[in-house]
Design a protein around this nucleic acid. Sequence first.
RNA 1: GCCGGAGUGGCGGAACUGGCAGACGCGCGGGAUUCAAAAUCCCGUUCUGGCAACAGAGUGUGGGUUCGAUUCCCACCUCCGGCACCA
Length: 1068
Amino acid sequence: MTEAAAHTQKRERTGGYDPGEIEPRWQAWWAARGVYRAPNPGEPEFDPTRPKFYVLDMFPYPSGAGLHVGHPEGYTATDIVARYKRARGFNVLHPMGWDAFGLPAEQYAIQTGVHPAITTRKAIDTFRRQLQRFGFCYDWSREFATIDPDYYRWTQWIFLKLYNSWFDAGDRQQAAGNRQQEEVRRREETKAQRNEGQGAQTFGGAEGKGRARSIEELVAEFVSRQREPRINPDAAEHSATDKGQVFGPWSTLDRATKRRIIDSYRLAYLAEQTVNWCPKLGTALANEEVTADGLSERGHFPVFRKPLKQWMLRITAYADRLLDGLNVVDWPESTRIQQTEWIGRSEGAEIEFPLCMSVLGGASGGASDSASGTACLREAVTVPVRDTESASRRQVVPGRAAPEAGSGVAAEVLRVFTTRPDTIFGATYMVVAPEHPLVARVLEHPEPETDIEKLRAYVEAARNRGDVERMAGAEKTKTGVFTGVYCLNPAVAADSGVAEGSTEPVFAAHRARIPVWTADYVLMGYGTGAIMAVPGQDQRDWDFARTFGLPIIRTVQPPEGFDGEAYVGDGSAINSGFLNGLEIDDAKQRIIDWLEEKGIGRRRVQYKLRDWLFSRQRYWGEPFPIVFDEAGNHYPVEEGHLPVTLPEMADYHPEESDDPRPLLAKASGWARMTAGAAGVRAATDEGDVLGLPPDAPVSRETNTMPGWAGSCWYYLRYCDPKNPACFSGPEAHQYWMGKGGVDLYIGGAEHAVLHLLYARFWHKVLFDLGYVGTIEPFRKLFHQGLITSYAYQRPDKSLVAVDAVDEVEEGKFIERETGRPVAQVVAKMSKSLKNVVNPDDVIAEYGADTFRMYEMFMGPLEASKPWNTRDVGGLFKLCNRIWRLFIDPDSGAIAAAVTADAPTRGALRILHKTIKLVGEDIEHLKFNTAIARLFDFVNALTPMDRRPIAVLEPFLRVLAPFAPHLAEELRHRLCAAGLIPGAPAESVSITQLPWPEHDEALTKDDEVEIAVQILGKVKAKIVVPADADEATLERVALADAKVREQLAGRTVRKVIAVKGRLVNIVAG
RNA sequence: GCCGGAGUGGCGGAACUGGCAGACGCGCGGGAUUCAAAAUCCCGUUCUGGCAACAGAGUGUGGGUUCGAUUCCCACCUCCGGCACCA
């Protein structure tokens, strides 16, 4: 019989602690009275005099398997904080709901035909029941799920806001200048917010780095000629050639061009994306779902890389603001670093290298001029370029159109991005990605030195390998092929003419003409898909140069004795013409100035962050509020026609097809209709490119949104979850979000980048458009650690399931089957190791209060720690001991030692210490030490034969956040026995009572024990008044008998006394 | 490889801003209570030596700074997490 079971048996005979009876009773009582309901501003029960506190858990996905012991860890922490803050006089918003779209329910539907909604609702019911059994103080009246049409209607609405917005980069120069000032202002604001907890709203302001504006305003600027109609120069979906492309005045443009321009600005746009298409499964797969040998993880079907039109969100426009925001939030450093690295901002330069080709122009467009191309080649080889003026460029590449910044004429120059423009003199070759347009062009028009078969084979091989494969390839040996193309290093070419007499022109000219290679270590998706390779200062380039015997020139002086390969440290420039002698930073400035002056390069910031692929070919997700006309143009469904609900499906099997078609395409009755029926705005006239005639046939977008969509804004809906007219009423979310947003957000570190970045992005768009008043959604973020479990390990490190092991003696384990010894180790909980702990089982045996306290007592919240069932009993014992402080377990009556006597000084001291320390620990989320204080209190009270009510009752209010059922029960029993004079009526819940105030004077001991060290070793202890000063300490210490004995025959050289701490005597 | 975080008794862990290492809990040992057991209460519990007083060692390893280091500095080892040819 277990300890708890035995105890329960005893309780049946007597008045012992019985959580199985107490807890459901109080849960029902709290629910019936709506104790945890948080009224919104405007409701009669709302108290505007209190500050607000919004404490949020990360949105759970209700899996069919139910709750795991990892879930309640964070939930208990937020519950404690919510209860504590409520007791400290805050209006607390503490909601819960469900992130319910997702793959598992759909997979289940494919297998069984059961509608995902049914599966999902069932899983939600299980989760809710389990969470309610913990006694969490959620305001369940605010519950919703992302699958509710009333919710996803607003998810679609936000998508439309993105679709109908563009990012106005504004005057970047000015923005950069304002940056620091802005940051200071925001930091101040955040500080103020932290102090106040709430404040006035500033709506619709931007952050000084560009902002989202409505598409209508953009079109108006085109129409009024305020802005020149051109393709968005920052549009990732357009080729370098198309970016920034300029057309005539708006009124002269045709419908298609107008649409093309507008769409290039939208924050939600369609683009061809290469996806992992699995014909057998009928869906695109994420990179993680594809095995190394190109098969689907599920089913092992072939996967092909195929271009597919996908919705993308232009998150890259917000890269800088997403970075800046990280400075104003109180988040774990590691998470801020992860986001920073994910965004991956690099400052550098874009440089154009003139191409020397026999065939210019061609595939990538632009005028073909073979004569000048040949001339260029010849010229570069034989004639050092004298002219250092910008004319030199014209000379080298005649007939080249002068491009504007950001536009590209890929036919004649090779444009690269580099963070080390200072090393340009060391660029001995170039590398382009295999997908680079230059490669395709060379394949079509080979150069004399092109080995076309080799090149084609290389490019083919590269194509079917995804980026992941390419980069994670186990062997890092460099591969590549020379394209046959050369280009000119503009710096070397120019410099060779300047340095009169000192350099050898011919050598310089050879140095200036450098080969262009293609290699898969250069990625098409980053920068321009081309690099200048500087093997002297870059290890990757060094490795490549060594592999293929390319020249290496150091352009930074390594320190003496440097015996490494590429040198990436500090130093001054060498072999670098006019840069020689400059330190790296100065050399960068100098060369960029030079490049800009020549018009062949410019400063540029580059990000690793890519736009967000927002389409999924699934059923169980939010439909897009978008339709297409017969020409394939897209139109938004007007707000009044939302939500676009999911159709019923006869079966959920994806169509097996080589032609990627989302699952919803099977619902043809749902997908086809007229523009009028779909809710597309009726076109006003011929020139209206954004509307359609109502009778025009349209078909719905059949992709669905990804799982992240619903969780991007749920924290806003909680503020006003039932609002039928608005995503969240302004008064409600302005109040709960205050100026700093969510006050405490606890969840796993696995969402450190994706969810937390996507949500911030949506929030900033909503901020720009004036819908929310905070620049960041989550002010303070905290990650709870993983709860692990024990497993057993054979000597060969393989793991053994817990049920296959016997403990033969204390701490010694053997594998039952073999009799061989195994070691106990900590491992992740997993079905295969049979070490998963089910919270329901634990609660059935010990109750929710014990469970809550155990999880909080295991260790620091942020640490990963192993579940040890044996330890749970210790917390159960604590609950029992608390019970017996109040209740005589034999009779069930109030214990005889409970007295109305005035408390002793000692009893008051332990109470006030407990109040103070537990409060401080909760504020710092140090729940493990807070519970240690509760133990201290109980240890101090247990031996007392008179336990004053005046000490016991405040203790219950300190206990309540941790063990709410136990505290509630005991307090009601004291009330019923008439032991709480002048207390609120019994109908009041302990959770509605204020936190007891502690008296600082009462937390202090009168006397303290001070250690006396001699040469750093404790040799004696002295007892002195708590406030004894240093001189007193020294005097008492030196007078101590033991100390004198130790010091006999030695001279005291120095005495260090620290008030309240110790005395250290240096003697020799 | 790079960037974080962490290594403290048999176990989970504690230690403010450089000031008595091991709070609190588990486990274990002893005692009280009991016909007995469970439960409960009390005492002990870092290691080594000693009956003991006490002595010595001790916070991953090796150095350093300091009257004094788990805490600060340098080098290294191990584990966990993230990123991984991003020019």
